[in-house]
Design a binder for these strands. Sequence first.
DNA 1: ATACAGGTATTTGAAAAACAAATGGCAAGC
DNA 2: GCTTGCCATTTGTTTTTCAAATACCTGTAT
Lengths: 302, 302
Amino acid sequence: MASHDVSMRQLRYFVAAAETGQFSQAASKVHVSQSAITTAVMQLEERLGVKLFERMPYGVSLTAEGNKFFQHASHILDTLQDALSEPFFLSHAINGVVRVGASYTVLGYFLPNLLARFKRSYPDVEIDLIDMDRGSIEAAVSSGELDVGLTIISNASDLGGLEHSVLIRSRRQLWLASTHPLMQSASITLKDVAGHAYIMPTVDEGETSALRYWHSQNLEPQVAFRTSSMESLRGLVAHGFGVTILSDMLYRAWSLEGKKIEIRPLTDAVPPMELGLLWREGASLNEAASAFQQFLIHACGS
Amino acid sequence: MASHDVSMRQLRYFVAAAETGQFSQAASKVHVSQSAITTAVMQLEERLGVKLFERMPYGVSLTAEGNKFFQHASHILDTLQDALSEPFFLSHAINGVVRVGASYTVLGYFLPNLLARFKRSYPDVEIDLIDMDRGSIEAAVSSGELDVGLTIISNASDLGGLEHSVLIRSRRQLWLASTHPLMQSASITLKDVAGHAYIMPTVDEGETSALRYWHSQNLEPQVAFRTSSMESLRGLVAHGFGVTILSDMLYRAWSLEGKKIEIRPLTDAVPPMELGLLWREGASLNEAASAFQQFLIHACGS
DNA sequence: ATACAGGTATTTGAAAAACAAATGGCAAGC
DNA sequence: GCTTGCCATTTGTTTTTCAAATACCTGTAT
């Protein structure tokens, strides 16, 4: 009587709720009534013996345990989608090696899940993964040393000789501690942010890409720290030493020490981060590389 | 009207059927009636538009597509189990590096899934994975160069100074092509196998461990090929060039070219393969290594 | 203070899904 | 040709899921 089994339906509703931050909005996203979401989440919480959401007057927000469960749940739904949408026939026949270059944040935040999923669908394709900066990746793809590259394409100015496809566009938002004064503001502009200590990430050309939109509004961030470590950045933000603006792809709600990091949209049009796939113009990819390319495009498509 | 959503329940029933090879046996395994299994599998087949099982008079057997779907489905159920059974509280706080040594087949066939699952549960633990032979792993664990080792423990004779825990016992069975004459026999002994061409795997001490049980019955295999490549071995078996005896852990129903490989139990008591975790006697593991150890033991437990 | 607006929780009766048990059909082995 | 051990189908019951209405809770504006 304790553990009515967890269902896909519950996971779908839970994930929708986690993604939207509101039960009612989640309800319309998955085309059911709000009570269905409420009930499903309650059943999950009962089954797990853990509160998954903190109920706020304006919606809900994941607890630490909820956040963890969210990782698992999304992974399950992703895997299910792979299982359902695959071209059933050829994938087992494909083998070979794909040489992939990826830049730092792509490697750490974007690829791990997708690689594991790819491997499950194409068990006989070997991925040769190389960690490089954007410039080197572009050069190596051009010269044919790499089959494909994965970079933050919005940092690139000229991609002569390379074909590309944008895999995800990830909105840039303000990261801040729950206790930060800006949490009070209903809406936040870049000018508001300029009045507070800023933590400048330096990985993957973070500084130049940030300054591009700061300068386009004739503003200057008040840089208090400069770091190439995402972990330390998270810690600094969580403890209220400053705020930063980064893409949702890099966002994790919790710092290593278990303090929550909040995000708020910026009303200025800060351009989104674009992560893209590069390959050599005109060159025909081998079968394995082509499968990898198609897989990524498809997995990011919906 | 086409796509009544796939449910966990269907996946559970499907996986049970795939594992047992009989709907009726699967039914009793998951404590439902046989018609429930039939219906669930039919719904899946309808949803996917693909036949998952070949119905035989003595049970069912996965099709190529079914086998593929089976990989995904088991992964989903594993992930769900991780999500439900985790100690929710500490895992996010744990970070550090675990140095793991694993031998060839362990690395290729046992670890990939588990590593991905571990990473999802403990995102801040880094696994430093090193490919070594059994002897070197035992030495490196003894000396403290590695935190833990993963080896085929049934090959070891003496583990002085090392603690160990058997993670899985994997039954050794006969692999053969669907067209092989031995497929006709209702029951097969080692002596029967001695009358046919044998393909001898040489990886991970395959030859010495095989000869151990051959010689204990005063028999000698008729070795036609000797190979260190699992891929070529699979191809040779699938094409009927010979048979081999290997553990279920290494078994995959389909060769790279898409030909099916069958397995049959041996009526002689061929000892199972034992895969074990090694660590240094008396040494206290660091937090990350200990989490890894516990995770493996738990994940293999049920 | 009070009303309101935006959220979540609860109740209720109807619709759909899942179930077990019984029955039917099919093929292999005796 | 009978029996046995499978999977498939049918049937009526039980359980789950659902939407809609309503209650509730909490900040905000009046």
